[in-house]
Design a protein around this nucleic acid. Structure first.
Lengths: 105, 105
DNA sequence: CAGGATCCGCTACGATACTG
DNA sequence: CAGTATCGTAGCGGATCCTG
């Protein structure tokens, strides 16, 4: 088993908001920057952009720029990014099965 | 979809080495501290212990202490922790399918 | 609207030395 | 062997201001 491979794998997902972003994009398909901002209350612009850039760099998220006067940028999961969602769903299921009470202590 | 739930979920797995630890424990069943140390070259004792403690606190890993003169402590996945492995496997599969070349650039 | 530029604080990580 | 203690650092995350 390539345990060392998981490092690189998970480093792409490390980041306080990446999963949240991915879930929102998976849930709603395509979102503009401001929509993401509103969808994720706790995050600041800088961090949001930062995480988006990293996700983009890693090929998980795609960024579509519309060259308009009021700027419009849309984010969505790449095909590959979408393929990760089953895994995340499993992860969610798993957390839901936590024995000692699933309260977020 | 509980996108906010994923935050708490993944925060348990955040940590440079947690996944690696989990994979090793899943792979080899039970490991002593020194064995984990050797299995994971890049990690320092302090961090390794730290991550183990957090995993233990979150109920993912179980710690078995044998009160002996040469101390012996074994770590293994809890039943719940083992249930996470399918998800991690999916995640690994997913990373293996990376389109733009799965090199860790 | 989208995001660049700064400054700032925290904590996760890392290396090393020491101990029961 | 399995930790604890201490110190140092980089980077992430956060807030705020500014711009095309």
């Amino acid at each position: 088993m390539a345990a060392s491979g998981i490092e690189t794998a998970l480093r792409m997902l490390e980041g306080r908001w990446k999963m949240v972003i991915i879930f929102h994009l998976f849930d709603r398909g395509t979102l503009r920057f401001s929509e993401l901002e509103r969808a994720i209350p706790g995050v600041s612009q800088k961090v949001l952009i930062n995480q988006l850039r990293e996700l983009e760099k890693d090929g998980i998220v795609e960024r579509q720029v519309y060259p308009q006067v009021p700027p419009k940028v849309e984010y969505k999961l790449s095909a590959w990014g979408e393929q990760m969602c089953p895994a995340l769903d499993l992860l969610l299921e798993w957390t839901a099965q936590r024995p000692q009470g699933n309260a977020e202590t």
